[in-house]
Design a protein around this nucleic acid. Sequence first.
DNA 1: CATCCGTGGCG
DNA 2: TCGCCAAGGAT
Length: 449
Amino acid sequence: MSENPGRSPDPAGGPRRRQKPAPSDGRRLPARRSRPERPGTGRIRRFRARLLAWYDAHRRDLPWRRRPDDAWAQLVAEFMLQQTQVATVTAYYERFLRRFPTVESLARAPQEAVLALWSGLGYYRRARMLHEAARRIVREHGGEVPSTVDELARLPGIGRYTAGAIASIVFGRREPVLDGNVRRVLIRWQATDGDPDAPDLRKRLWDLAEALVPRRRPGDFNQSLMELGATVCTPRAPGCGVCPLRRSCAARRLGLTEILPRAKRRRTPEALNIVALAVERDGRLLFVRRPARGLWGGLWDLPTEAVACGERPTQALRRLVRRLAGGRRAVGRPVGRITRLLTHRKVTFRLYRLTGTPAARGIPAGRRAGDTGYRWLKPDESGRVGVSRAVQSLIAMLDRHRSRRRFRRPEADRPGRRSRDQLQGAAAEEAGEESGCGTVSLTGTSTDG
DNA sequence: CATCCGTGGCG
DNA sequence: TCGCCAAGGAT
Protein backbone atom coordinates (compact mmCIF):
# COMPACT_ATOMS: atom_id res chain seq x y z
CA MET A 1 0.00 0.00 0.00
CA SER A 2 2.92 2.31 0.31
CA GLU A 3 3.46 2.14 -3.40
CA ASN A 4 0.61 2.87 -5.71
CA PRO A 5 1.99 3.05 -9.16
CA GLY A 6 -1.33 3.07 -10.89
CA ARG A 7 -3.02 5.33 -8.51
CA SER A 8 -3.82 8.77 -9.35
CA PRO A 9 -4.74 11.44 -9.06
CA ASP A 10 -3.74 11.70 -5.51
CA PRO A 11 -5.58 14.73 -4.36
CA ALA A 12 -2.78 15.66 -2.06
CA GLY A 13 -0.11 15.26 -4.66
CA GLY A 14 1.12 11.83 -3.68
CA PRO A 15 0.93 9.22 -1.03
CA ARG A 16 3.47 10.76 1.23
CA ARG A 17 3.94 14.25 -0.05
CA ARG A 18 2.19 17.17 1.44
CA GLN A 19 -0.17 19.27 -0.51
CA LYS A 20 1.49 22.21 -2.08
CA PRO A 21 -0.14 25.49 -1.25
CA ALA A 22 -2.36 26.75 -3.96
CA PRO A 23 -1.25 30.07 -5.26
CA SER A 24 -3.91 32.64 -4.79
CA ASP A 25 -2.51 34.98 -7.38
CA GLY A 26 -4.16 33.22 -10.27
CA ARG A 27 -1.37 30.86 -11.19
CA ARG A 28 -2.32 27.33 -11.67
CA LEU A 29 -1.16 24.45 -9.69
CA PRO A 30 0.95 22.04 -11.68
CA ALA A 31 -1.24 19.65 -13.56
CA ARG A 32 -1.49 16.29 -11.96
CA ARG A 33 -1.47 13.12 -13.82
CA SER A 34 -4.86 11.51 -14.12
CA ARG A 35 -5.26 7.84 -14.67
CA PRO A 36 -8.03 5.48 -13.83
CA GLU A 37 -8.09 4.78 -10.17
CA ARG A 38 -7.60 1.38 -8.73
CA PRO A 39 -9.85 0.86 -5.83
CA GLY A 40 -8.56 0.36 -2.40
CA THR A 41 -5.99 2.98 -1.55
CA GLY A 42 -6.28 4.18 1.97
CA ARG A 43 -6.97 7.77 1.22
CA ILE A 44 -9.67 7.01 -1.25
CA ARG A 45 -11.18 4.36 0.96
CA ARG A 46 -11.44 6.86 3.76
CA PHE A 47 -12.97 9.41 1.43
CA ARG A 48 -15.65 6.95 0.38
CA ALA A 49 -16.31 5.62 3.83
CA ARG A 50 -16.66 9.01 5.46
CA LEU A 51 -18.85 10.35 2.73
CA LEU A 52 -21.14 7.34 2.65
CA ALA A 53 -21.45 7.28 6.42
CA TRP A 54 -22.30 10.95 6.39
CA TYR A 55 -24.82 10.38 3.62
CA ASP A 56 -26.49 7.56 5.49
CA ALA A 57 -26.95 9.85 8.45
CA HIS A 58 -27.86 13.08 6.67
CA ARG A 59 -29.41 12.33 3.34
CA ARG A 60 -32.44 14.41 2.64
CA ASP A 61 -35.77 12.82 2.05
CA LEU A 62 -36.34 13.78 -1.55
CA PRO A 63 -39.25 12.63 -3.68
CA TRP A 64 -37.16 10.78 -6.25
CA ARG A 65 -35.35 8.87 -3.52
CA ARG A 66 -38.55 7.19 -2.52
CA ARG A 67 -38.68 5.13 -5.69
CA PRO A 68 -35.05 4.25 -6.26
CA ASP A 69 -35.89 1.40 -8.60
CA ASP A 70 -38.13 3.40 -10.88
CA ALA A 71 -35.81 4.33 -13.72
CA TRP A 72 -38.40 6.55 -15.32
CA ALA A 73 -38.96 8.52 -12.15
CA GLN A 74 -35.22 9.01 -11.81
CA LEU A 75 -34.91 10.09 -15.40
CA VAL A 76 -37.58 12.72 -14.94
CA ALA A 77 -35.87 13.94 -11.80
CA GLU A 78 -32.51 14.22 -13.51
CA PHE A 79 -33.96 16.23 -16.37
CA MET A 80 -35.67 18.60 -13.99
CA LEU A 81 -32.59 18.93 -11.84
CA GLN A 82 -30.39 20.08 -14.67
CA GLN A 83 -29.24 23.55 -13.64
CA THR A 84 -32.16 23.73 -11.27
CA GLN A 85 -32.15 23.56 -7.53
CA VAL A 86 -33.81 20.81 -5.56
CA ALA A 87 -36.27 23.13 -3.86
CA THR A 88 -37.51 24.38 -7.21
CA VAL A 89 -37.88 20.93 -8.69
CA THR A 90 -39.83 19.30 -5.90
CA ALA A 91 -42.83 21.50 -6.60
CA TYR A 92 -43.00 20.25 -10.16
CA TYR A 93 -41.83 16.71 -9.82
CA GLU A 94 -44.77 14.97 -8.20
CA ARG A 95 -47.32 16.68 -10.37
CA PHE A 96 -45.41 15.73 -13.49
CA LEU A 97 -45.05 12.09 -12.45
CA ARG A 98 -48.69 11.83 -11.52
CA ARG A 99 -49.61 12.94 -14.98
CA PHE A 100 -46.87 10.94 -16.72
CA PRO A 101 -46.14 7.97 -14.47
CA THR A 102 -44.57 5.87 -17.20
CA VAL A 103 -42.38 6.28 -20.25
CA GLU A 104 -45.30 5.32 -22.43
CA SER A 105 -47.61 7.90 -20.94
CA LEU A 106 -45.22 10.70 -21.78
CA ALA A 107 -44.38 9.29 -25.17
CA ARG A 108 -48.06 9.36 -26.06
CA ALA A 109 -48.71 12.84 -24.72
CA PRO A 110 -49.01 15.92 -26.91
CA GLN A 111 -46.19 18.38 -26.49
CA GLU A 112 -48.68 20.91 -25.24
CA ALA A 113 -49.41 18.90 -22.13
CA VAL A 114 -45.73 18.43 -21.42
CA LEU A 115 -44.91 22.11 -21.68
CA ALA A 116 -47.92 23.00 -19.57
CA LEU A 117 -46.56 20.97 -16.68
CA TRP A 118 -43.12 22.45 -17.22
CA SER A 119 -44.39 26.02 -17.13
CA GLY A 120 -42.31 28.13 -14.82
CA LEU A 121 -39.52 25.63 -14.46
CA GLY A 122 -37.36 27.16 -17.13
CA TYR A 123 -35.01 25.74 -19.74
CA TYR A 124 -37.99 24.53 -21.68
CA ARG A 125 -35.94 22.69 -24.20
CA ARG A 126 -35.43 20.10 -21.49
CA ALA A 127 -39.13 19.33 -21.59
CA ARG A 128 -39.10 18.79 -25.32
CA MET A 129 -36.00 16.65 -25.10
CA LEU A 130 -37.43 14.57 -22.30
CA HIS A 131 -40.51 14.09 -24.41
CA GLU A 132 -38.43 12.98 -27.35
CA ALA A 133 -36.29 10.76 -25.14
CA ALA A 134 -39.40 9.00 -23.91
CA ARG A 135 -40.52 8.35 -27.45
CA ARG A 136 -37.19 6.91 -28.37
CA ILE A 137 -37.05 4.75 -25.28
CA VAL A 138 -40.39 3.30 -26.30
CA ARG A 139 -39.40 2.88 -29.91
CA GLU A 140 -35.81 1.73 -29.57
CA HIS A 141 -35.59 0.20 -26.12
CA GLY A 142 -38.95 -1.48 -25.72
CA GLY A 143 -40.03 1.07 -23.17
CA GLU A 144 -37.19 0.26 -20.78
CA VAL A 145 -34.78 2.98 -19.77
CA PRO A 146 -31.36 1.78 -20.94
CA SER A 147 -28.81 1.01 -18.27
CA THR A 148 -25.45 1.87 -19.79
CA VAL A 149 -23.96 5.30 -20.08
CA ASP A 150 -23.37 4.86 -23.79
CA GLU A 151 -26.96 4.06 -24.55
CA LEU A 152 -28.22 6.71 -22.19
CA ALA A 153 -25.98 9.39 -23.61
CA ARG A 154 -27.38 8.77 -27.08
CA LEU A 155 -30.76 9.96 -25.94
CA PRO A 156 -31.62 13.62 -26.40
CA GLY A 157 -31.05 15.79 -23.38
CA ILE A 158 -28.76 13.29 -21.72
CA GLY A 159 -25.11 14.15 -21.47
CA ARG A 160 -22.29 12.68 -19.53
CA TYR A 161 -23.57 13.79 -16.17
CA THR A 162 -27.13 12.56 -16.55
CA ALA A 163 -26.02 9.29 -18.10
CA GLY A 164 -23.67 8.66 -15.20
CA ALA A 165 -26.33 9.58 -12.68
CA ILE A 166 -28.93 7.19 -14.09
CA ALA A 167 -26.45 4.36 -14.64
CA SER A 168 -25.10 4.60 -11.12
CA ILE A 169 -28.18 5.52 -9.12
CA VAL A 170 -30.69 3.29 -10.83
CA PHE A 171 -28.58 0.46 -12.20
CA GLY A 172 -25.76 0.35 -9.72
CA ARG A 173 -23.04 0.76 -12.27
CA ARG A 174 -19.72 2.19 -11.26
CA GLU A 175 -19.94 5.41 -13.22
CA PRO A 176 -18.87 8.84 -12.04
CA VAL A 177 -20.87 12.04 -12.11
CA LEU A 178 -19.59 15.56 -12.26
CA ASP A 179 -22.00 18.39 -11.74
CA GLY A 180 -21.64 21.81 -10.21
CA ASN A 181 -21.74 20.42 -6.69
CA VAL A 182 -19.22 17.66 -7.26
CA ARG A 183 -16.95 20.04 -9.07
CA ARG A 184 -16.93 22.45 -6.16
CA VAL A 185 -16.36 19.71 -3.60
CA LEU A 186 -13.48 18.19 -5.50
CA ILE A 187 -11.87 21.50 -6.35
CA ARG A 188 -11.90 22.45 -2.70
CA TRP A 189 -10.82 19.06 -1.54
CA GLN A 190 -7.68 19.27 -3.59
CA ALA A 191 -7.40 23.07 -3.51
CA THR A 192 -7.26 23.25 -7.27
CA ASP A 193 -6.83 26.65 -8.76
CA GLY A 194 -7.87 27.47 -12.28
CA ASP A 195 -11.00 27.97 -14.29
CA PRO A 196 -13.49 25.24 -13.40
CA ASP A 197 -14.81 25.37 -16.93
CA ALA A 198 -11.45 24.89 -18.60
CA PRO A 199 -11.38 21.60 -20.46
CA ASP A 200 -8.17 20.34 -18.88
CA LEU A 201 -9.43 20.93 -15.38
CA ARG A 202 -12.73 19.39 -16.27
CA LYS A 203 -11.03 16.31 -17.52
CA ARG A 204 -9.00 16.02 -14.36
CA LEU A 205 -12.10 16.36 -12.26
CA TRP A 206 -13.87 13.68 -14.24
CA ASP A 207 -10.87 11.46 -13.78
CA LEU A 208 -10.89 12.12 -10.08
CA ALA A 209 -14.61 11.44 -9.83
CA GLU A 210 -14.03 8.25 -11.74
CA ALA A 211 -11.27 7.28 -9.35
CA LEU A 212 -13.35 7.95 -6.30
CA VAL A 213 -16.60 6.23 -7.16
CA PRO A 214 -16.69 2.80 -5.56
CA ARG A 215 -17.93 -0.42 -7.00
CA ARG A 216 -20.30 -0.82 -4.14
CA ARG A 217 -23.02 1.76 -3.77
CA PRO A 218 -21.85 3.96 -6.63
CA GLY A 219 -25.22 5.66 -6.81
CA ASP A 220 -25.27 6.50 -3.13
CA PHE A 221 -21.71 7.69 -3.36
CA ASN A 222 -22.46 9.99 -6.26
CA GLN A 223 -25.49 11.34 -4.50
CA SER A 224 -23.47 11.85 -1.35
CA LEU A 225 -21.00 14.01 -3.24
CA MET A 226 -23.79 16.10 -4.70
CA GLU A 227 -25.59 16.25 -1.38
CA LEU A 228 -22.47 17.42 0.35
CA GLY A 229 -22.01 20.16 -2.21
CA ALA A 230 -25.63 21.22 -1.92
CA THR A 231 -25.92 21.27 1.85
CA VAL A 232 -22.43 21.58 3.38
CA CYS A 233 -19.80 22.48 0.82
CA THR A 234 -21.91 25.36 -0.41
CA PRO A 235 -20.63 28.11 -2.67
CA ARG A 236 -20.65 30.63 0.15
CA ALA A 237 -20.21 30.07 3.84
CA PRO A 238 -19.49 26.35 3.63
CA GLY A 239 -20.08 24.36 6.78
CA CYS A 240 -16.57 23.03 7.10
CA GLY A 241 -17.04 22.33 10.78
CA VAL A 242 -19.50 19.54 10.06
CA CYS A 243 -17.98 18.31 6.83
CA PRO A 244 -17.07 14.62 6.78
CA LEU A 245 -14.09 15.45 4.58
CA ARG A 246 -12.70 18.23 6.73
CA ARG A 247 -9.66 16.25 7.83
CA SER A 248 -8.47 15.69 4.30
CA CYS A 249 -9.68 18.86 2.63
CA ALA A 250 -6.82 20.87 1.18
CA ALA A 251 -8.79 24.08 0.82
CA ARG A 252 -9.73 23.97 4.47
CA ARG A 253 -6.17 23.33 5.52
CA LEU A 254 -5.00 26.24 3.41
CA GLY A 255 -7.82 28.57 4.28
CA LEU A 256 -9.03 28.74 0.69
CA THR A 257 -12.61 27.60 1.03
CA GLU A 258 -13.92 31.07 0.48
CA ILE A 259 -11.77 31.57 -2.59
CA LEU A 260 -12.23 28.27 -4.37
CA PRO A 261 -13.52 27.46 -6.81
CA ARG A 262 -12.50 30.44 -8.79
CA ALA A 263 -15.53 32.41 -9.80
CA LYS A 264 -16.54 32.58 -13.39
CA ARG A 265 -16.83 35.94 -14.87
CA ARG A 266 -20.20 36.74 -16.29
CA ARG A 267 -21.31 39.39 -18.61
CA THR A 268 -23.80 41.86 -17.32
CA PRO A 269 -27.16 41.06 -18.76
CA GLU A 270 -28.18 42.87 -21.87
CA ALA A 271 -31.22 45.11 -21.65
CA LEU A 272 -34.13 44.10 -23.81
CA ASN A 273 -37.36 46.00 -24.06
CA ILE A 274 -40.58 44.38 -25.13
CA VAL A 275 -44.08 45.68 -25.48
CA ALA A 276 -46.81 43.13 -24.90
CA LEU A 277 -50.45 43.52 -25.72
CA ALA A 278 -53.47 42.13 -23.96
CA VAL A 279 -56.16 41.57 -26.56
CA GLU A 280 -59.43 40.59 -24.93
CA ARG A 281 -62.55 39.32 -26.59
CA ASP A 282 -65.53 37.57 -25.05
CA GLY A 283 -63.67 37.08 -21.82
CA ARG A 284 -60.73 35.47 -23.53
CA LEU A 285 -57.19 36.55 -24.02
CA LEU A 286 -55.20 36.21 -27.22
CA PHE A 287 -52.08 34.06 -27.11
CA VAL A 288 -49.56 33.45 -29.83
CA ARG A 289 -47.17 30.57 -29.97
CA ARG A 290 -43.47 31.24 -29.90
CA PRO A 291 -41.17 29.56 -32.38
CA ALA A 292 -39.88 26.19 -31.29
CA ARG A 293 -36.32 27.38 -31.03
CA GLY A 294 -34.87 30.17 -29.01
CA LEU A 295 -36.00 31.88 -25.86
CA TRP A 296 -39.13 30.37 -24.36
CA GLY A 297 -39.32 28.18 -27.42
CA GLY A 298 -42.66 26.53 -28.08
CA LEU A 299 -44.40 28.35 -25.26
CA TRP A 300 -47.46 30.53 -25.57
CA ASP A 301 -46.99 34.21 -25.31
CA LEU A 302 -48.93 37.40 -25.46
CA PRO A 303 -48.44 39.28 -28.70
CA THR A 304 -45.17 41.12 -28.34
CA GLU A 305 -42.92 43.46 -30.20
CA ALA A 306 -39.33 44.36 -29.48
CA VAL A 307 -38.65 48.01 -28.81
CA ALA A 308 -35.85 49.07 -31.06
CA CYS A 309 -32.86 50.97 -29.82
CA GLY A 310 -33.75 54.59 -29.24
CA GLU A 311 -37.37 53.94 -29.99
CA ARG A 312 -40.27 54.90 -27.77
CA PRO A 313 -42.32 51.96 -26.52
CA THR A 314 -45.41 53.53 -28.02
CA GLN A 315 -43.88 53.29 -31.45
CA ALA A 316 -43.32 49.60 -31.02
CA LEU A 317 -46.83 49.33 -29.67
CA ARG A 318 -48.25 51.00 -32.75
CA ARG A 319 -46.28 48.64 -34.92
CA LEU A 320 -47.58 45.69 -32.95
CA VAL A 321 -51.18 46.81 -33.16
CA ARG A 322 -50.87 47.50 -36.85
CA ARG A 323 -49.48 44.05 -37.41
CA LEU A 324 -52.17 42.37 -35.35
CA ALA A 325 -55.12 44.40 -36.45
CA GLY A 326 -54.15 44.62 -40.03
CA GLY A 327 -53.73 48.34 -40.21
CA ARG A 328 -56.81 49.09 -38.18
CA ARG A 329 -56.56 51.99 -35.84
CA ALA A 330 -56.45 50.97 -32.24
CA VAL A 331 -54.84 52.14 -29.08
CA GLY A 332 -53.17 50.45 -26.19
CA ARG A 333 -53.74 51.56 -22.66
CA PRO A 334 -50.73 51.08 -20.39
CA VAL A 335 -51.21 48.47 -17.71
CA GLY A 336 -47.80 48.29 -16.18
CA ARG A 337 -44.43 46.78 -16.58
CA ILE A 338 -42.45 43.89 -15.27
CA THR A 339 -38.79 43.03 -15.47
CA ARG A 340 -37.36 39.54 -15.76
CA LEU A 341 -33.73 38.74 -15.19
CA LEU A 342 -32.54 35.89 -17.34
CA THR A 343 -29.08 34.44 -17.46
CA HIS A 344 -27.79 37.02 -19.85
CA ARG A 345 -30.69 39.32 -20.47
CA LYS A 346 -32.72 41.77 -18.55
CA VAL A 347 -36.08 41.84 -20.19
CA THR A 348 -38.55 44.60 -19.51
CA PHE A 349 -42.11 44.01 -20.61
CA ARG A 350 -44.49 46.89 -20.94
CA LEU A 351 -48.01 45.61 -21.02
CA TYR A 352 -50.84 47.42 -22.75
CA ARG A 353 -54.51 46.63 -23.14
CA LEU A 354 -56.04 46.99 -26.49
CA THR A 355 -58.93 49.38 -26.33
CA GLY A 356 -61.66 49.60 -28.85
CA THR A 357 -63.63 46.39 -29.13
CA PRO A 358 -64.09 46.55 -32.88
CA ALA A 359 -60.37 46.37 -33.29
CA ALA A 360 -60.16 43.08 -31.45
CA ARG A 361 -62.71 41.56 -33.78
CA GLY A 362 -60.40 41.35 -36.71
CA ILE A 363 -57.48 40.08 -34.71
CA PRO A 364 -55.27 38.45 -35.54
CA ALA A 365 -55.29 39.76 -39.04
CA GLY A 366 -51.89 38.37 -39.76
CA ARG A 367 -49.27 36.31 -38.05
CA ARG A 368 -45.65 36.92 -37.45
CA ALA A 369 -43.21 34.87 -39.37
CA GLY A 370 -42.26 31.99 -37.17
CA ASP A 371 -45.46 31.91 -35.24
CA THR A 372 -47.05 28.57 -35.46
CA GLY A 373 -50.42 29.62 -34.21
CA TYR A 374 -52.61 31.60 -31.93
CA ARG A 375 -55.49 30.87 -29.63
CA TRP A 376 -57.95 32.56 -27.36
CA LEU A 377 -57.92 31.38 -23.78
CA LYS A 378 -60.13 32.03 -20.81
CA PRO A 379 -58.33 33.07 -17.64
CA ASP A 380 -58.62 29.63 -16.09
CA GLU A 381 -57.35 27.99 -19.26
CA SER A 382 -53.99 29.66 -19.39
CA GLY A 383 -52.69 27.07 -16.95
CA ARG A 384 -53.33 24.34 -19.48
CA VAL A 385 -50.74 25.48 -21.96
CA GLY A 386 -47.07 26.15 -21.66
CA VAL A 387 -46.31 29.72 -20.67
CA SER A 388 -43.24 31.32 -19.23
CA ARG A 389 -43.06 32.83 -15.80
CA ALA A 390 -42.89 36.21 -17.49
CA VAL A 391 -46.24 35.63 -19.16
CA GLN A 392 -47.69 34.36 -15.90
CA SER A 393 -46.62 37.63 -14.32
CA LEU A 394 -48.11 39.65 -17.14
CA ILE A 395 -51.42 37.86 -16.77
CA ALA A 396 -51.41 38.40 -13.04
CA MET A 397 -50.73 42.06 -13.56
CA LEU A 398 -53.57 42.26 -16.03
CA ASP A 399 -55.91 40.62 -13.54
CA ARG A 400 -54.98 43.10 -10.86
CA HIS A 401 -55.47 45.89 -13.30
CA ARG A 402 -58.90 44.63 -14.24
CA SER A 403 -60.14 44.18 -10.70
CA ARG A 404 -58.84 47.58 -9.74
CA ARG A 405 -60.74 49.18 -12.53
CA ARG A 406 -63.88 47.28 -11.73
CA PHE A 407 -64.04 47.77 -8.00
CA ARG A 408 -62.39 50.99 -7.18
CA ARG A 409 -64.41 54.08 -6.53
CA PRO A 410 -63.48 57.21 -8.41
CA GLU A 411 -62.11 58.97 -5.37
CA ALA A 412 -59.75 56.09 -4.83
CA ASP A 413 -58.21 56.69 -8.21
CA ARG A 414 -55.22 58.58 -7.14
CA PRO A 415 -51.61 57.80 -7.77
CA GLY A 416 -50.95 56.58 -4.27
CA ARG A 417 -53.43 53.78 -4.74
CA ARG A 418 -51.99 52.51 -7.92
CA SER A 419 -49.49 49.76 -7.94
CA ARG A 420 -45.92 50.53 -8.64
CA ASP A 421 -46.12 48.55 -11.83
CA GLN A 422 -48.94 50.55 -13.20
CA LEU A 423 -47.49 53.78 -12.02
CA GLN A 424 -44.23 53.08 -13.71
CA GLY A 425 -45.90 51.89 -16.86
CA ALA A 426 -48.05 54.94 -17.01
CA ALA A 427 -45.22 57.25 -16.16
CA ALA A 428 -42.99 55.73 -18.76
CA GLU A 429 -45.77 56.02 -21.25
CA GLU A 430 -46.42 59.64 -20.52
CA ALA A 431 -42.78 60.53 -20.54
CA GLY A 432 -42.34 58.91 -23.92
CA GLU A 433 -39.41 57.10 -22.45
CA GLU A 434 -37.00 55.73 -24.94
CA SER A 435 -35.63 52.26 -24.98
CA GLY A 436 -32.09 51.69 -23.88
CA CYS A 437 -29.56 50.83 -26.50
CA GLY A 438 -27.52 47.74 -26.82
CA THR A 439 -30.49 45.50 -27.16
CA VAL A 440 -30.36 42.51 -29.38
CA SER A 441 -33.15 41.04 -31.38
CA LEU A 442 -34.89 38.38 -29.42
CA THR A 443 -35.30 35.19 -31.34
CA GLY A 444 -38.88 34.93 -32.41
CA THR A 445 -39.60 38.52 -31.63
CA SER A 446 -38.24 40.01 -34.73
CA THR A 447 -39.17 43.51 -35.54
CA ASP A 448 -40.68 42.17 -38.73
CA GLY A 449 -38.79 44.82 -40.56
C1' DC B 1 -14.76 26.19 -27.57
C1' DA B 2 -18.34 29.88 -26.72
C1' DT B 3 -22.87 30.83 -26.42
C1' DC B 4 -27.47 30.03 -25.49
C1' DC B 5 -31.21 28.55 -22.63
C1' DG B 6 -35.19 30.35 -17.19
C1' DT B 7 -35.94 30.82 -12.76
C1' DG B 8 -35.36 31.37 -7.80
C1' DG B 9 -32.57 31.99 -3.72
C1' DC B 10 -28.98 33.98 -1.24
C1' DG B 11 -25.73 37.32 1.06
C1' DT C 1 -30.03 46.15 -5.38
C1' DC C 2 -26.91 43.12 -7.57
C1' DG C 3 -23.94 39.40 -8.76
C1' DC C 4 -23.46 34.64 -8.28
C1' DC C 5 -25.01 30.05 -8.59
C1' DA C 6 -27.73 25.87 -9.37
C1' DA C 7 -28.24 17.42 -9.80
C1' DG C 8 -26.18 20.54 -17.83
C1' DG C 9 -26.89 19.88 -22.71
C1' DA C 10 -27.05 21.27 -27.47
C1' DT C 11 -25.16 23.71 -31.13
